[in-house]
Each structure stands twice: as structure tokens, then as C-alpha cells.
Design a protein around this nucleic acid. Structure first.
Lengths: 352, 352
DNA sequence: CTGAAAGCGCTTACAG
DNA sequence: CTGAAAGCGCTTACAG
């Protein structure tokens, strides 16, 4: 029945309409003052701004989003904040987005691709305009959903010229080839590895492949019993080290490649406890260059990546697309820098 | 002129209306199937779900938010993700919220209250239903805005019975009284402190007050030149330690209270470099109980706080309010646990 | 430069 | 249990 009275709650907040009547203009004009100020005469512009300020009006983003299809929201999906690497990326992204008037949704998959998908879908439903994803290990549905809606995205921490996705990061395989070559050049021939789980983690898989490829190129291989895989904790690093290095000297590895610094630091702690010293008794390497790695005794040989700048680059690329300055996000390779310290040395050691 | 044709872009996405016609029901019914399923007969319910799935419909949150005044978005404002303490809180919150169908906005103030306010306002404009804030050091406007809109909030990491805000955390002052009392009981009388900046950080201010109050209760005081304030880095901890401990033995502090573990670990590294050993030559304490603190040599005496559970509690309290199960968030005190390790010992040392 | 009004995609009070 | 339609708070194509 037309004309029936309806009672709706509403938000109870000051709305644009109130500003319009206070300033004696139409709602269209108020909207323009904030979205296309050049199209409004200065006198009216000031009057409207004054009214908005006086009424303490905060625009309702839902109304705005519905009318304009723009939400000024971006999203990021990372595995976990427990790894400071990802925390730094998010910190970088957050700063850039916030500065551009974007608010950031954060999702953590805990290395479960389906959980990542679920959270990405929640973000899509809430209208994110762009999204950053760590790594390429996501369900095909996720990439399909992004493409179907034409939502710009970038993959971070993985980089490959051959990737079908725009990516900002480094070539994990190449980095670990470089690290392994460093140890080979020092004379090491018996290698061991202590790594995080490879499942659902394309970055770790690539790192391990790098070690294997570099060894194969030198006609070497890592013995199966020398590859230990487990959680990325100091504890696992320490246990693994003890396991590897309490065997007879003749069969022990001389070089231990760790999947990251945290594992390597745990191993170094176990070494201290066992009275084994690097680089005299063994060499060991990490990846990440945590703050503590350079100050630890011995200093840890590792590779440094500027994770925060991966985050800022990713955010800047996404903003460039969202604001129409660019057609699509551009890939960017960030080179990890090898930091050679006392934890790696010649083998056999020259004892002076 | 009524009846004029208008062309609007629209999102180009599948919308609820399409699901309704595919399932041969009204839009109201489709909405009910997902929001109040009990009100729809099972046959129709299944038909609608089937149609939604077939069309791959994802509800538009802006439309939903506008119509229902609910966004299913929560927000958190922290100082920085660079501190793993806050990263863990966010990790905990993210998991709980995501599980309840809420997506999380993340804002970082970098210890600037105005930046925190700015980001909180952006979240309010986007309709957050609840918000968590680290500490009480926020502009009065921020709390006023939350109250004016009736947005439930909790303060984290600070706890005080006297607080005018709901808070989930611990009493920083009491924790540092406890730590200082531990050192006093061991026989220490000459104290030094290495702390993060107090400005805009009510937690650090309370920690320092705790040290001072505990000393005053023992008729002691910390000499001005023994309090060093600077960035929360290993470097600052190391420099400060050297500065304090390269003076003559007669004037040096015997106990050094650090504002957190990171600073204390830096100090311990400098001690190793200088050939000074705890607890023989000095005692030192931290706060946080980082993963590395128990495994370091010597083990660091510190206090452990379950930061992740602060995050999950905060999220659960906010959800309870938002879903109407509770009128307001309840405060919760989380007790830090003193972890006594080898970095603190009797003074003067009994040398066996 | 400015305004009247349609429309964005949902929810929900009302009627049946 | 189901539907017709008003309404949430904005933006913007159109007209002037």
C-alpha cells in the first residue's frame, strides 16, 4: 500500500542531509565539497565545511560505498604475525595505506590456504579495493575471484619472472643457491639442512630446492638423514643441531643451512651448550637477518631482506592501480643481501 | 522530471535480486535465508542456498551495512607491529574475530596519539562495531567519539581498578614493584634503569614509577645518572650497559632493571663483550619473556605475559557486547608471572 | 556552479 | 511462512 508509514531505526547519527540544510544547499553540493571541491564555488565550499565541522559530521562509509562503488579499504593476507618478517610487511603497508586515506583489513591464514581463502572472501564481501597476498600458494578460486571482480592484487615474498601474478619479493630459490654456493666456496662438502615445513609454503619449498640444486651442480647431495624439518622455533633449531652434531665427527655435516635465522639461532645456542664453536667446528647460516643475528656471538651469516619496503612497495603499487595511475601492479624484485659473519668459515679450518 | 532514464554503473556483480529470481522467491526471503534461517521453510531455504551457490553470489557488505547498521567489522589500534608483544595481541584478536565472522581493521599509531585518533576516526567512518586500543594514552576526543556513537571498546595492556575504561591487561606499576622487590630481596642497593621513552606511553611511565616506588619503600632511590632512556633496541641496551658498567666498581650499579627483554638482551650481549658475567658481576632483569630470553646464556630473569590471550580476551569481550550477550565489556586482570633465571642473583655473590 | 531526484544492494516493518 | 515496498546515507547523471 503506497503511502504507508514505516519506522526504521537509522543510525541516529548526523548525516549529510543535516549538513546540507544547515548550509542551505543541496545534498549534491555537500557531497561535491568533499569529493570534487573544484566544482564548488569557494564561498559555498567554506560554508559547507563550516557546517560539517559544527555538526561534527562523519560520512557514513556504507552509504558512500554503495553509491560510488568505492570503499577506500585494502586488505592483506599473511600467514601469521608471529613471524616478524610479516609483521614488518604489514607495518609498511599500513603506513602507506593510512596515508592515502585507506584503511587496512588484516587476515592471517596460519599457513592454511583454505583459511586464507575464507578471510579473503570476507574482505571481498566488504568491498576491499585491492589485496596483497603472501606467496603464491593460494587456492585457484581465490585468484579467480580477484580476477572476476577485477580487484588488483600482488603476491609478496615470492618473485619469479615466470609468475602469472604480479609479485614483489625475491627469488627464494636463487637466494639459497647463493647461500649454498658461499658454503661450497669455503670448502664444505657435507651439508645438512634444518627447515620449516614445506607444506603450503612455496617460499620454503623454493629455498630447499635452491640448496639441492646448488649441491647437485657441485655433484653433491644432502643425505636424507641430514634434512630435518619442523617448527620455526629456537627449540627445534636447538634439538636438530644436537641431533646432527652428536654423531661421530667423521659423518657429521660441516655446513648446516637453516631455513631462517630463528632456527639458526636456536642451533647456535645448542652449540654453545655442547661446547661446539662456529666456524671452527662447523659452519651455519640463516635467512632474514633479524636484529639479534648480527649481535649474537658468533655473528650469524644470513641474508637480509627489507621486509618493510616489500610492504610499502606492495601498497604503493596497489594504490597506483586503484587511483587509476597505472593499469596493473608492476612486479618488483627485491634483492636479498648476503651478510657474511663469523658463523661460516673455511673448511677445513686453517688453525693459526 | 519524474520518469527520466538514469544510467548508473553499479558494481556489475551478481546481486541478491538475481538469486531471488533464480530461486523464484522475493528478495526478502533470500535475505532471511542467510540472516534468520529459522523463519524460512526448509524447502525454500535449500532452493535459495542452491541458487546462491550456483550464481556464486557474495553479499555486498555496503548494502547490508546501510540497511542493517551492522558491518561485522572490528578495529584495533596498536603502537606498532615491530614489537612482537603487539603482534601477538593482534594475532589473537584476528583469530577470534575471524571465527565470529568479523573482519579486522588494523591501525598503528607509532606512539603518536594524534595518528591513533586519525586512524580510529577512519575506522569509525567505515562503521566498526567495536574497537580495541592499547593503553589509555589517547586523546579525550577519541574516547568521546566512541561513547557518543556507543561503540564498545576496551583498553589493553594497562589494567587498573580505578580506570574509567574497561581494560584487559596487567598493572604495569605493580609488576615492576614486584621485580624491584625481587632484586632488593637479593641484597641489591645500587640500582640503574634502562627504559624506553615515557612520552605518550602510560605503560612505560607506570613501570618506571613501580621501580621508584619500590626503591622509595626501601629508603633507596635511583641516581639520576643511572637512568638511561632511549629506543627499545638491542643497540641501546648494549650502549647503555657499557656506559653504566665501565665506571669504577665502587659507583657502578649492581642491579639493572630494564623496561623490556629486548633492551636487557642487548645489555647482556654488551656484558659478554666486556667480559662481565651475571649474576657474579651484576644482576639484570627484563620484561616480556621473549622466546629467546629463556635460552640465552645466562637465562634472563623477566616477567611473562600471555599477550595472545590478552588479544583473545579483548576480542571475546567485544563480541559479547556486539552480539548483545553483555551490556559492556568486562575488565580483566592478567597476572604477569615472574621468571627467575640466572641473570639475577644474590649481592654480594657467595663465591663458593 | 547548483539542485532535484534516481539509484547503489541490501534489510525489515508491515500485511497477509 | 512469504512478499511488496520503503528506507538505510550517500553519489552522480541529467538539467538548468
Amino acid at each position: 500500500m503506497t503511502g504507508t508509514k514505516r519506522t526504521r531505526e537509522g543510525s541516529g547519527r548526523v548525516k549529510l542531509e543535516a549538513v546540507a540544510s544547515a548550509a542551505n544547499v543541496s545534498t549534491a553540493t555537500v557531497s561535491r565539497v568533499f569529493n570534487e571541491p573544484d566544482k564548488v564555488s569557494e564561498a559555498i565550499r567554506e560554508r559547507v565545511k563550516e557546517a560539517a565541522r559544527a555538526l561534527n559530521w562523519i560520512p557514513n562509509a556504507a552509504g558512500r560505498a554503495l553509491a560510488s562503488s568505492r570503499t577506500h579499504i585494502a586488505g592483506a593476507i599473511i600467514p601469521t604475525l608471529d613471524n616478524e618478517i610479516f609483521a614488518h610487511q604489514i607495518g609498511g603497508m599500513q603506513a602507506v595505506f593510512s596515508n592515502a586515506g585507506f584503511t587496512l583489513f588484516l587476515g592471517c591464514s596460519n599457513y592454511d590456504p583454505l583459511e586464507g581463502l575464507r578471510q579473503a572472501e570476507a574482505m571481498l564481501a566488504r568491498g576491499v579495493e585491492a589485496i596483497a597476498l603472501v606467496g603464491e600458494n593460494h587456492p585457484a578460486e581465490l585468484f579467480a575471484a580477484l580476477k572476476a571482480r577485477d580487484i588488483p592484487y600482488v603476491v609478496t615474498y615470492s618473485y619469479s619472472k615466470l609468475s602469472e601474478h604480479p609479485c614483489i619479493g625475491f627469488d627464494n630459490r636463487a637466494a639459497f643457491i647463493r647461500m649454498t654456493d658461499h658454503l661450497l666456496a669455503l670448502g664444505h662438502r657435507r651439508f645438512a639442512g634444518i627447515f620449516q615445513p614445506v607444506a603450503n609454503n612455496d617460499r620454503v619449498a623454493a629455498r630447499l630446492a635452491g640448496v639441492r640444486d646448488a649441491l647437485a651442480a657441485a655433484d653433491l647431495a644432502m643425505a636424507d638423514e641430514n634434512l630435518l624439518v619442523g617448527p620455526s622455533t629456537l627449540e627445534f633449531g636447538a634439538e636438530s643441531f644436537s641431533h646432527l652434531m652428536t654423531r661421530e665427527r667423521e659423518v657429521r655435516p660441516t655446513a648446516i643451512v637453516c631455513g631462517n635465522d630463528n632456527i639458526a639461532l636456536g642451533a647456535l645456542m645448542a652449540a654453545n651448550a655442547l661446547g661446539l664453536k662456529a666456524p671452527t667446528d662447523f659452519s651455519i647460516t640463516g635467512f632474514d637477518d633479524l636484529a639479534i643475528s648480527s649481535r649474537f656471538a658468533p655473528g650469524l651469516t644470513t641474508m637480509k631482506v627489507d621486509n618493510q619496503s616489500i610492504g610499502t612497495s606492495a601498497a604503493n603499487q596497489l594504490l597506483a592501480v586503484v587511483t587509476g595511475r597505472q593499469a596493473g601492479p608492476q612486479s618488483e624484485e627485491v634483492a636479498p643481501v648476503l651478510q657474511i659473519r663469523d658463523s661460516s668459515g673455511r673448511w677445513p679450518q686453517d688453525r693459526a
